[in-house]
Design a protein around this nucleic acid. Structure first.
Lengths: 185, 185
DNA sequence: ACCTGAACACCGTTCAAGT
DNA sequence: ACCTGAACACCGTTCAAGT
């Protein structure tokens, strides 16, 4: 059921992932879905949880400055694995319906740096906002490109992945900022 | 017209800001709106531009480490000035329909630090993602609180504004990260 | 140029009734 | 417990026709 929904998400994208289409994919009446979920947002929350759980958590190295970027990259991969994955997780998170595993993994990695819980929590939240915003934007462009609206990413003149570069740069900014924070206390 | 839409946004929120309601507020038929905007997203893009233009840009001090947080704070204020302001800007930006003034202001402030354009652009994008994500979350909670879904923010036991604090912390992380970046090149 | 009236092709959700 | 059938109260958008 959630599997069918994830497949449909990948096929048609979030804007076209309607309860009626999902029902049709399951060869069932729309009203039947409401025996499994109280409403659409709850159903999307289950998708969000599955999207995030996609990749197993990276083994921690003991060095937070290595683990934080690794967790961020793993999260990005999980989000990219499904069409509009970032948006699904974003909306679920903002409604407080789940997807908190993502925040926890980032916070756990940061905590290794010896930061207090409030600092780690705030840093993790800030980093999560960046990751979601970045990947969301990335996926938006993927759609535009595939629709031929714009030239299909000039990006890699030299075989480089500009999106991944910009992502790594943003994550590094956080790590460097945290490092500076710890050295000035 | 855009003014009426902004008032309606403030009254009912983004999910209930429909073309039909807007038409009713203007005492006009829904179809009449399509003589002013080609579609709903374009209309939201105009709102996004007006929301961002809300506060005049802060005068620059010459010190990027002062100006960047100031621009970020001014942007936050602009977004908070309208219900669901962050979400309106987020969606407009991700569709590439406008609201680029926000990114420009952040990038201009960062550039003063002597960073090259690519670095400044990437840092500005990362910071903007954080700002939008943070304020969006902030506004989501404002709604929940006003609906009495949760206790109205335990937050300020000592009269502190936890949201603003967390925001400033996130911005500082960026500034500290950028500073570290410049000192290691 | 700007608007009305009417329609098209959809939505999410509810609910009595069936098995 | 799970589903159907039918309905309710909506959407965004189009288009001929009017002024």
């Amino acid at each position: 059921m959630a599997r069918a929904a994830l497949r449909l998400l990948d096929d048609v994208g979030l804007p076209d992932l309607t309860m009626r289409r999902l029902a049709a994919a399951l060869e069932v009446q729309p009203s039947a879905l409401y025996h499994h979920f109280p409403n659409k947002q709850t159903m999307l929350a289950e998708l969000a949880d599955r999207i995030i759980a996609g990749r197993p958590a990276v083994v921690h190295s003991g060095d937070w400055a290595v683990d934080v970027p690794a967790q961020a990259a793993a999260l990005r991969d999980s989000l990219l694995a499904y069409r509009d994955g970032a948006e699904v997780v974003e909306s679920t998170l903002s409604l407080g319906l789940g997807a908190d595993a993502a925040l926890r993994r980032l916070a756990d990695a940061i905590v290794q740096g010896g930061f207090d819980d409030e600092t780690a929590g705030r840093a993790a939240t800030a980093l999560l906002h960046f990751v979601l915003g970045h990947v969301s934007h990335e996926q938006q462009r993927l759609q535009y490109d595939s629709l031929g609206v714009v030239a299909p990413r000039v990006a890699d003149e030299h075989g480089l992945d500009t999106s991944a570069d910009a992502f790594a740069f943003g994550v590094d900014l956080f790590v460097a900022g945290l490092r500076a924070h710890v050295s000035t206390r």
